[in-house]
């Protein structure tokens, strides 16, 4: 009897490991060494051109006590994350609900809404976005038409950051697509049953859509939070890598890149990265912990 249970347990473990083996192999071969190496670099003054020299906690001490730009970049990044994540998710869910119906035009609409995300981080999008927000760009023309004052998007640190935030919100396509896929996974019978009970659209949304979609909402929230924290390309291409004006767009990852690659301080950059990792990991953990209260799974973990 015990032997049989043991065998069953072994088999179960073998099966599990077999399924995730691609990840484990890939992790050990391609990812583990670079991660360990970057952890090691964070305690060195590695400059990429000569062998790393051990400096203990120097990088961390400088970062926390003697680098005003570091704290500036932390502030900018937090502002960015707090603005982008809710805006992007709400927007994406709203559009996804609009597009989650059967209609001949729907494929075209989806493609249209997804297009901004496709052009992604290319050079062309940077040029275009900078042009849109130029002193006499379309955004300012619209603002003046509405009787508002034109904004100097490139002269005001907060306005410049909002230019980045709006770019991120505009490229909401990936979250939208995931929501769409999630919405499509909700069995239509649930809605039919609710309709029979006479539920109105708002009730349907909160009683069926949100709970059924909650695993996907959790996924989107976590992934968007992580990606907002490590956002690099938009800031880099729109400010030509400077973080101007007055460091208003100096996102954490951009500052890290400047330190590591432009100033040859890979050690310092790695230290910055590990602090960021710890912060994101804690936030993600908190999100996972709270998910017990609001995420509804059809199956218990692991079945």
């Amino acid at each position: 009897m015990t032997k049989a249970t043991l065998m069953k347990a072994i088999r179960r473990n073998v099966a599990g490991y077999a399924f995730i083996s691609p990840f484990i192999i890939g992790f050990l071969v391609f990812t583990a060494f670079p991660i360990v190496a970057s952890f090691f670099y964070s305690f060195t003054s590695f400059d990429m051109l000569t062998a790393p020299k051990f400096v203990g906690l120097d990088n961390f001490v400088t970062m926390f006590t003697n680098d005003p730009k570091y704290w500036k970049s932390v502030k900018v990044t937090l502002y960015y994350v707090v603005a982008v994540v809710p805006l992007r998710l709400t927007f994406a869910l709203f559009i996804a609900m609009l597009l989650a119906r059967a209609s001949r035009m729907i494929g075209v609409y989806r493609t249209m809404f997804y297009l901004p995300s496709i052009i992604g981080g290319s050079v062309a999008v940077a040029i275009m976005w900078r042009n849109l927000f130029g002193d006499d760009g379309v955004i300012n023309i619209l603002l003046t038409l509405l009787g508002l004052d034109a904004v100097r998007w490139f002269g005001n640190p907060t306005a410049a950051l909002w230019m980045l935030i709006m770019l991120a919100v505009w490229q909401f396509g990936s979250s939208m697509l995931i929501f769409l896929a999630g919405l499509k996974n909700i069995p239509p019978t649930y809605y039919e049953a609710a309709a029979v009970d006479g539920a109105n659209p708002v009730q349907k949304f909160f009683r069926i859509t949100i709970p059924m979609l909650s695993p996907v909402i959790l996924f989107n929230t976590i992934m968007q939070t992580i990606s907002a924290f490590i956002t690099f390309i938009p800031a880099f291409i729109i400010t030509k890598g400077t973080g101007q004006p007055l460091d208003g767009t100096l996102l954490y990852s951009l500052y890290l890149f400047r330190r590591a690659f432009q100033f040859f301080q890979m050690g310092y950059g790695s230290a910055m990265a590990w602090i960021l990792l710890i912060v994101i990991a804690i936030l993600t953990l908190i999100l996972f912990k709270t998910s017990r209260f609001w995420v509804h799974y059809e199956t218990k973990e692991g079945n």
């Binding site: 992790f27 190496a37 670099y41 990429m48 992580i226 490590i230 690099f232 960021l276």
Partner: peptide, 16 residues
């Protein structure tokens, strides 16, 4: 697996 998502690419680039 989740941790690998959180490390900025810049710092694993050299060892990779």
């Amino acid at each position: 697996m989740m941790l690998t998502l959180m490390l900025p690419f810049e710092v694993v680039l050299i060892p990779q």
